[in-house]
Nucleic acid binder design. Structure first.
Lengths: 209, 209
DNA sequence: ATTTTCGGTTAGTGTTCACTAACTCGATTC
DNA sequence: GAATCGAGTTAGTGAACACTAACCGAAAAT
């Protein structure tokens, strides 16, 4: 998951002490383990005890890092949507034209979906489990991410209505986010390098068709 | 529990009596309501009491129709995967050539995804919650459905490896099944007729690119 | 007309689980 | 070196919930 988006949950000023660093590490470990477990068994199928055990502490120790189970989910989803938006903006800033921009957006999203498959699976499935406040925040970040795609698409296809472009972007996300799903099914897949190319090709073709 | 893999949903011999018909109706009502609720709040977020209330009875009456909560989910997912497979076979039997077959498969899947959005959402998300026996059965049905797509694609693109075609089919399902997801987000969408055309176009373009 | 069947009811029961309480002990601070 | 802090521990606690028990009354079977 990396990035630790902005301020979010890590203390405003992480004290540079030994204990402070270990605490930050453990927090990160919990988030990684939680993403994997939530992706595998669903948010409701994972207990606080499971989260602790997964990082070598037991049960209530998790409350030293998060105010509750839903806060863990919130941190994962908020981090993911923030990373996505940040990445899109970084990518767009460097693109010389709209065609290159779309190519880069697709490539970035493919990288994210393959690299953070657990997080993607959780984001797709457990949005409704969030507390209303955080859910609204995550939705807002996601909406802004989509708008970056729509703006880019609008440059390439000014003939199409914005609602259609938005709809197409969502469909493309469904396509690109399919790997975390099918990764769970035990079917054989092409090699990782090959997958990347296929996904990029399919996404481009579907969006520009 | 459950462990009624085969005959499952419709009774072996639906007795033509009054009570028998009412029972079948109620069973169907529970399944419909359950699909909607599971799609909205997730399998674990719905109680047996909720299921009863949704059809006007209360709580334990559901056990007169299903052996337990997981049996309700099993009936939904088994019914869905069976409908999909049956539909694909019906459609393929009538197609004059591979191109028409793929067009029909896509159209059929779009219809299903738009018509049974709740079921699709549940199938995507709650497969892991099934008891192992039923999960295996559903997986098997899904696999056979995918194979229909792969066989059709293989006729059209004999140059491509089967693993690639299978992977592309999965990605296309992600694209086509995105509407039940985005239906939940409150973004404005194109009219229903328009959606159909766009999805078909995108799916075709991505598969054949 | 009598008996049986069965879909419904309300009232438990046992378990699981998020979260809290009280305490421990090494690292940090003074 | 003494005082404090805070991340960890184990032992509850209370609520939610899947499922069972016991009963009821109308439809179905005899």
């Amino acid at each position: 998951m990396a990035s630790t988006p902005a301020q979010a949950q890590t203390a405003l000023q992480p004290p540079l002490t030994e204990r402070g660093r270990q605490k930050a590490d453990r927090r990160e470990a919990i988030l990684t383990a939680a993403a994997r477990l939530f992706a595998e068994r669903g948010y409701a199928g994972v207990t606080i005890e499971d989260l602790g055990t997964a990082v070598g502490v037991s049960g209530p120790a998790v409350y030293r890092h998060f105010t509750g189970k839903s806060a863990v989910l919130a941190a994962i989803l908020e981090g993911a949507s923030r990373s996505l938006l940040d990445g899109a903006e970084r990518v767009l800033a460097e693109a010389p034209d709209a065609a290159a921009a779309l190519r880069s957006l697709i490539r970035f999203h493919v990288d994210f979906a393959l690299g953070e498959a657990d997080v993607i699976a959780v984001q797709d499935r457990e949005l409704e489990q969030l507390d209303p406040g955080v859910r609204h925040e995550v939705r807002s970040l996601q909406r802004r991410y989509v708008e970056r795609w729509v703006d880019t698409l609008a440059e390439l296809r000014p003939d199409r209505a914005e609602v259609e472009l938005r709809f197409r972007a969502h469909a493309a996300f469904g396509l690109l986010n399919s790997t975390p799903h099918s990764a769970r099914t035990p079917g054989r897949r092409p090699a990782d390098g090959t997958i990347r190319g296929i996904l990029e090709e399919m996404a481009w073709a579907s969006l520009m068709s």
